[in-house]
Nucleic acid binder design. Structure first.
Length: 419
RNA sequence: GGAGAGGUGACCGAGCUGGCUGAAGGUGCACGCCUGCUAAGCGUGUGUGGGUCAAAAGCCCACCCAGGGUUCGAAUCCCUGCCUCUCCGCCA
């Protein structure tokens, strides 16, 4: 969340940020509630001070075996008043907190201003579209021919968007995950975590999925748990309500998890094959850093994600998201889009974001800096990478004229293949 | 799921026969001293959030898992929830 003090003194900036992000947030009501809240807090403090001081007088008189009836009579009244003011204050605070959680993060100045993805800019292009020398098939044809997927049966047992990887397809998927996990640990210094796939409401609120995206998530009613849409959620929240030391930072984690998304509202769009799924696998990088280091950390994480695509020799581009395309919690985001020759499109395989202190405030993740001052950390995360579209790009890029596929050399050891 | 014990500051750990206890002591951390170096030792300091203030100091309020209750007054008593530990049951 955004610091209310910052909002108070930067109202215009906040309004611009909200509208640039295509969000709706009721700043005026929030500010009015803030006003009320502070007034009530003042009343509460004043009367509480009275209670505390008379309380001491009573204690002293009792000790000295003096009569304190007058004080006691006054205190009964004060106690009543306190109850009233407290009830009022609690009500206002609740409403205030609820509203504050709906205020989005503020984009960084470097972020291009724009309404939607058409205003995104291309930050970088790596490699170029390969010449296959024959007509490219799309990944679904290739997968079917090579018996890598069984989507109909996945749909039968769960519904569309729940893929089954079969035989070599399953091994290839597993190899991709293992390769990426090891790569980030050995080359980029991340520590691996295996985390819960179902998390509670507080956790979902901490990273900013709630309250906004409740409709997009699978929910387990009985226990009020949500299936995670990304490892970002459990991993970022591991330090919720903790105070770390500056010596602990930066912390860099990599975690593989399945991800679950209802994708409400995006039915029928780009759904062929593995393009858009309700369950998919992703290797995620998460960093906790000191505020001064977050801009650089973002660039490093982008490079970490790119390194995977480069290792596979896949053509891709880096997209600099505009304000309207940024997520609710993000200050700045790069997307990685890999080229899929058969599908004929660039497909998003990674999103690398800097959240500043936004998530750290929500989840209450702080650290003590070198001067002993307690501050919020900055959090970042980036996919490194999501597998389905990566698989698409690999199959379509490395398909052969006879319908078979080549496996990039770096991946071969993970499949027990030797050439 | 059943029975018991417990949840205190960055961490460990007293207090829990209600009233100068925001909380002893220790560790850690910061600064200083000392010592060929390191280790050890000595001294001082060290909670968070909110309010008041131009700012600092000072002062006020809240916070001893969370939410209620009892009371003039609760870290301390009662209830509920969550979590941890031990035992039993069940089970991969």
């Amino acid at each position: 969340m955004i610091d209310i003090k910052f909002i108070r003194s930067n109202v215009e900036l906040m309004k611009t940020a909200i509208s640039n992000k295509n969000e709706k947030a009721d700043l005026d009501t929030l500010l009015a509630l803030d006003e009320q809240r502070r007034k009530l807090q003042f009343d509460f403090d004043t009367i509480k001070a009275r209670q505390n001081s008379v309380s001491q007088v009573i204690a002293q008189k009792k000790k000295a075996r003096e009569n304190a009836d007058r004080e006691l009579a006054e205190m009964s009244q004060v106690a009543e008043e306190i109850k009233l003011v407290a009830a009022n204050l609690n009500g206002v605070n609740e409403e205030f907190d609820r509203l504050l959680l709906t205020i989005p993060n503020v984009p960084q100045p470097e972020v291009p201003i724009g309404k939607d993805e058409t205003a995104n800019t291309i930050a970088k292009i790596w490699g170029k579209q390969p010449e296959l020398g024959f007509e490219a098939k799309d990944h679904l044809e290739i997968a079917t021919q090579n018996k890598l997927l069984d989507l109909p049966r996945g749909a039968k047992i769960s519904g569309s968007g729940f893929p089954i990887y079969t035989g070599f397809g399953a091994r290839l998927e597993r190899a991709l995950i293992s390769f990426m996990l090891e790569f980030h640990q050995q080359k980029h210094g991340y520590e691996e975590l295996m985390v819960p796939l179902a998390v509670n409401r507080k956790t979902m609120t901490g990273t900013g999925q709630l309250p906004k995206l409740e409709e997009d998530m699978y929910h387990i009613n009985e226990d009020d748990l949500f299936l995670i849409p990304t490892a970002e959620v459990p991993v970022t929240n591991i330090y919720a309500d903790e105070v770390l030391s500056y010596k602990d930072l930066p912390k860099c984690y990599v975690s593989y998890t399945p991800c679950f998304r209802r994708e409400a509202g995006s039915y029928g769009k780009d759904t062929r094959g593995l393009q858009r799924l309700h369950q998919f696998n992703k290797v995620e990088m998460v960093r906790f850093v000191e505020p001064e280091g977050s801009a650089q950390a973002l660039e490093e994480m982008l490079a970490n994600a790119e390194a995977i695509l480069q290792a596979f020799g896949l053509h891709y581009r880096v997209v600099n998201l505009c304000t309207g395309d940024l997520s609710f919690a993000s200050q700045r985001t790069y997307d990685l889009e890999v080229w899929a020759p058969g599908t004929g499109k660039y497909l998003e395989v990674s999103s690398v974001s800097n959240f500043g202190e936004f998530q750290a405030r929500r989840a209450n993740i702080r650290y003590k800096d070198k001067d002993g001052k307690v501050r919020h950390v900055h959090t970042l995360n980036g996919s490194g990478l999501a597998t389905p579209r990566l698989m698409i790009a690999l199959l379509e890029t490395y398909q052969q004229a006879d319908g078979s596929i080549l496996i990039p050399p770096v991946l071969q050891p993970w499949l027990g293949i030797k050439l």
